[in-house]
Computed example of a mutant assay.
Amino acid sequence: MTEEIIIAGFGGQGVLSMGKILAYSGMMQGEEVSWMPSYGPEMRGGTANVTVILSDDRISSPYLKVYDTAIILNQQSMDKFEHSVKPGGVLIYDPNGIIDHPTRTDIAIYQIEGNRLATEMGNKKVFNMIVLGGFLKVKPIVQLDNVIAGLKKSLPERYHHLIPLNKEAITKGMQHIISYKVESALIDH
């Protein structure tokens, strides 16, 4: 099994930490992992993305042009990465702020309203964990126990009291991800 993932959005959305937690989770399962962040000099508010590879085999290169899964959190990232998903792959996105929704019919597309759900939970900072939960529902490549262990590894100890809230956010994401049908969306417009 090899899973090549791009997570992209604005700096401050937890893109890089979502990738780091996924990478740590893979390590906890004995996987080979690669975590390669990319962000502009402005960070918060600028665009950021991270490539994560989890594999049973050695990873030859962290540089990718196409991905099994793209997790898209803003319009700029949708414009840049929608066409980088391999045919038969998966695109997961938060529709908040997305004007041009995905149009490909050769990939599976899912929506998760992470922004809205985080607001309902009363903590915008769990947005990325909600999205991660949605991803893990669609592609259960790491076990929840390993995600929690990954959280413990990546969060400073002073934030470990937030782990139960993060676990709740992951579960909420798993419960609220929905399939997005391009055909019906195009007909409605």
Rank of each mutant, 00 (worst) to 15 (best):
D79K: 09
S17H: 00
V138S: 10
H161Y: 15
L144H: 14
V66H: 06
P62F: 15
I163F: 03
M43L: 11
K167P: 01
D57E: 15
I98K: 10
Q29T: 05
H160Q: 06
S179H: 09
V142R: 07
G133R: 04
G40M: 07
D106P: 14
G97Y: 11
G89N: 15
T105L: 12
D57A: 08
Y110W: 08
V66D: 10
Y67T: 09
N74F: 04
S60K: 08
I71D: 02
I107S: 06
R104P: 10
P87Y: 03
N96S: 13
V15G: 01
I53G: 04
I92S: 02
D188C: 08
T105I: 08
P95Q: 13
P95L: 12
N128R: 05
I21Y: 00
N166E: 04
L117S: 06
G134Q: 09
E32F: 09
I109N: 02
M18R: 00
A185H: 15
P87T: 09
L144V: 15
I148L: 14
L151Q: 06
P95S: 13
N96A: 15
A8Q: 02
V142T: 10
D106R: 15
L155I: 07
N96K: 12
V131T: 09
N146C: 13
P62L: 15
I112V: 14
Y39F: 08
S77C: 11
K153E: 11
S38Q: 05
K125A: 15
M121N: 08
K181M: 15
S184G: 14
Y110T: 10
R58M: 12
G46P: 00
S77L: 09
P164Q: 06
V66K: 13
R158Q: 14
K137M: 07
K124W: 03
T51D: 08
A149V: 01
A8I: 00
P164R: 03
I7C: 01
G46A: 14
N96P: 00
G26N: 04
G173N: 09
T69D: 05
T103C: 14
V33T: 07
A169N: 08
T47N: 11
D57R: 09
D145F: 06
M129K: 02
G134Y: 02
N74M: 10
G122N: 12
P140R: 14
I187N: 05
M121L: 15
G11H: 02
L165P: 00
K139P: 01
S184H: 13
I6R: 07
G89T: 12
H101Q: 12
N123Q: 11
F135V: 01
R104L: 10
D79T: 11
